[in-house]
């Protein structure tokens, strides 16, 4: 399936300061797009605008050629967004957290797939521990398990490598490349240096 997220003349202002202006973007299947820039250069704002969470911007967004307003439902059904906050409830176990996300994506729960997804992110044995008792890196891994659990074409990841150990970083990088190779599309901000790959494209802000 080919998909395409386009932005035309995107501009965003915060506190009388332009974070970016006149930004044209074309993000297509099979790409990993890394957004770079120093702290405060508007990486998170750009990701939020591109994932349809911020409406305070100028310019236009298109999803598969249609204006974002009209294509929003189709867009959301293809989007997986992981923000700064992992979105994991500390009072629930990793399994319960994933069960909610699975249902939220419209699928009826399947415990086996949830267990598989947790095993893939290296959390086998922690399925029933309350997430609040897990380390920050492990909580991040629970959130990352959603990448395997709910298959979506477009991944928008805001600093996904935060608190992840070196081994996990390599695994996640491989997963991003595999996703792009399979026709998916990854939009990522990170301060971690990604291994060069023909699929990788950089966009610099600030």
């Amino acid at each position: 399936m080919s998909l395409c997220l386009q932005a035309r003349q995107l501009a965003c202002e915060r506190d009388d300061r332009w974070l970016f202006q006149g930004l044209d973007l074309d993000i297509r299947s099979g790409e990993i797009v890394r957004i770079e820039g120093p702290n405060g250069s508007g990486k998170t704002s750009l990701l939020k605008i591109l994932s349809g969470q911020l409406s305070d911007y100028q310019g236009e967004l298109f999803w598969n050629g249609a204006a974002m307003n009209e294509a929003r439902e189709h867009f959301l059904a293809n989007l997986l967004y992981l923000g700064h906050a992992p979105g994991i409830k500390s009072g629930l176990s990793p399994l319960e957290n994933l069960a909610w996300y699975q249902a939220l994506s419209g699928e009826s729960g399947n415990e086996e797939r949830r267990l598989d997804a947790l095993e893939q992110v290296g959390l086998a044995g922690f399925e029933d521990v309350p997430a609040g008792q897990l380390s920050a890196g492990q909580q991040r891994r629970v959130a990352l398990a959603r990448l395997t659990l709910t298959p979506r074409a477009l991944w928008v990841l805001d600093e996904p490598f935060t608190a992840i150990d070196r081994h996990g970083v390599a695994d996640l990088e491989r997963q991003l490349v595999a996703h792009a190779q399979a026709g998916g599309c990854v939009l990522v901000t990170t301060h971690h240096e990604l291994t060069a790959s023909p699929l990788l494209r950089r966009i610099s802000l600030g």
Partner: peptide, 9 residues
């Protein structure tokens, strides 16, 4: 904890 933005998406 960020689940609200996931709920909206």
């Amino acid at each position: 904890d960020g689940s609200l933005e996931q709920l909206l998406l």
